[in-house]
Simulated scan of single mutants.
Amino acid sequence: MGNTMLYVITSLSVGGAQKALLNLASSDFSRDYPPVVIALVEVDGVQKQFAEAGIPVHVLGINRLTQLPWVLPRLFGLVRKIKPQVIHGWMHHGNLFATLTWWLAGCRPVLLWGMHHTPEKATLERKQHALVLKVGRWLSRFPQQIVYVSRRSMQRHAELGYAMQHAQVIANGIPLGNNREQAAHYASVRQELGIPANARLIGSLTRYVPEKDIPNLLNAIRLYQEGGEDAHFLLAGEGMNAHNPALQPLLSALPDAIKVHLLGVRTDAQRLIAALDIATLSSQREAFPLFLAEAMAAGVPCVATDVGDIAEFVADTGTIVPVADAAALANALSGLLNQAPKVRESLGEQARQRVAARYSLNAVIQAYQQMLGKVATYSVSNA
């Protein structure tokens, strides 16, 4: 299959890392490196989008470690049949299995790792994650290149003892929005949710996991409303629905007047983002949150917590607030929404231009092509 790029990812659940892979694998980059994907864990997610993009996907279904012995022969058969030129791990578990796949390949293709997470202290306190990180530290000497999506992620892995001689930062690539489509989405989403056309809409496409700090976000929403402000709030993503038992008491504590739209898992993220006046995240830990970058690409100004590389890529196109400070988050939302519409539009346009200049999908493709060119040259010179 020529220059086939075999991506090995933990799962195809709905998340930023998965979407970043879909963006890259379905881009012009696939002309030089036709993609094939192996997903370790079987979950409901974005398999349909990969299929629609014509990307072959093989799901191993390693939902329990006891299944591993039965899966290894299939993995061996797949890699020998695909004969990839490059094997690219994606996320921590995907990196470990990419290395195993590289060993099984026989022909020793180029091995890349992709780091989409920043392992802060809380991550290390989880036994399974701590073990995966320790194994990864030992194996990190094998890949020809380790790609980090943020400088903070690279710094933390260096502190944990990961090999750094072939490390570099390549942010997730963001397709730029289409103004005409965005205007249509702005109206259609509001119509779908019963939101008046002139109402202000704040949104967060996130997940109900500890690192996203949803309690802080909901507390900020409460403080925002108590300050006499009025807006609708769109919350979408895994666990962001009324059936989540952990979310129910937090929602019950909100005044009835607060208009929160819980959408759960959605696959039309770009359409939802286009309807927003402000995008927000209240995370305690991040590497490169794709949601904020997509919002900026759509011309939506952002309010977010100061974690990972968020402050660097948002810069002066939005507002950055301290972690776990609901009052600061509420005040920032209020301050930005109370700006004149022309000011917000100007900030949104600056955000769009910043993404186009620094984080566009084309820029990421060029970075990958340069990296693979150097790796190929190095491999030949050391053959």
Score class of each variant (00 low, 15 high):
residue 136 G to N: 09
residue 104 L to Q: 04
residue 339 Q to P: 01
residue 134 K to S: 13
residue 63 N to Q: 09
residue 167 A to Q: 03
residue 17 A to C: 11
residue 82 I to E: 12
residue 252 S to Y: 08
residue 369 Q to C: 11
residue 15 G to P: 01
residue 333 L to K: 04
residue 40 L to Y: 02
residue 342 K to M: 11
residue 166 H to E: 10
residue 357 A to P: 06
residue 342 K to R: 11
residue 268 D to G: 08
residue 72 L to S: 08
residue 53 A to C: 07
residue 128 Q to M: 12
residue 156 R to L: 15
residue 256 D to K: 14
residue 22 L to D: 00
residue 214 I to T: 07
residue 294 E to D: 10
residue 39 A to Y: 00
residue 73 P to C: 06
residue 102 W to F: 09
residue 331 N to A: 15
residue 349 E to A: 12
residue 258 I to K: 08
residue 125 E to Q: 14
residue 214 I to E: 04
residue 80 R to V: 05
residue 88 H to M: 09
residue 310 I to C: 08
residue 11 S to R: 13
residue 161 G to W: 03
residue 33 Y to K: 04
residue 72 L to C: 11
residue 81 K to A: 14
residue 247 L to P: 07
residue 326 A to H: 06
residue 281 L to G: 06
residue 108 R to I: 05
residue 358 R to G: 11
residue 20 A to G: 15
residue 266 R to L: 13
residue 213 D to Y: 04
residue 57 V to Y: 02
residue 20 A to M: 07
residue 186 Y to T: 09
residue 46 V to F: 08
residue 306 D to A: 15
residue 204 S to M: 13
residue 245 P to W: 05
residue 203 G to A: 08
residue 118 T to C: 14
residue 141 R to W: 10
residue 274 A to F: 02
residue 246 A to H: 11
residue 272 L to R: 05
residue 22 L to N: 02
residue 207 R to E: 06
residue 325 D to A: 14
residue 7 Y to G: 00
residue 200 R to S: 14
residue 272 L to E: 03
residue 248 Q to S: 10
residue 320 I to T: 08
residue 279 A to T: 03
residue 123 T to D: 15
residue 319 T to L: 15
residue 368 Y to V: 02
residue 155 Q to R: 12
residue 260 V to M: 06
residue 66 T to Q: 15
residue 244 N to A: 08
residue 96 L to G: 01
residue 62 I to A: 13
residue 355 V to K: 09
residue 288 F to S: 13
residue 377 T to H: 14
residue 310 I to V: 15
residue 337 L to C: 08
residue 210 P to H: 07
residue 366 Q to N: 12
residue 240 M to W: 05
residue 67 Q to I: 02
residue 253 A to F: 09
residue 317 T to K: 09
residue 216 N to T: 12
residue 56 P to I: 02
residue 69 P to N: 08
residue 138 W to E: 09
residue 259 K to V: 04
residue 341 P to V: 09
residue 325 D to I: 02
residue 352 R to D: 01
residue 239 G to E: 05
residue 10 T to H: 03
residue 159 E to K: 07
residue 234 L to Q: 01
residue 383 A to D: 10
residue 19 K to W: 01
residue 171 A to H: 15
residue 86 V to A: 01
residue 118 T to N: 14
residue 249 P to M: 08
residue 177 G to N: 10
residue 311 A to G: 14
residue 98 A to S: 06
residue 269 A to K: 11
residue 167 A to N: 04
residue 127 K to C: 10
residue 248 Q to I: 11
residue 12 L to C: 07
residue 58 H to P: 06
residue 235 L to K: 03
residue 240 M to R: 03
residue 118 T to W: 10
residue 174 I to R: 02
residue 97 F to N: 00
residue 78 L to V: 04
residue 300 V to P: 01
residue 332 A to Y: 00
residue 189 V to D: 00
residue 86 V to T: 11
residue 198 N to S: 13
residue 185 H to K: 06
residue 351 A to L: 09
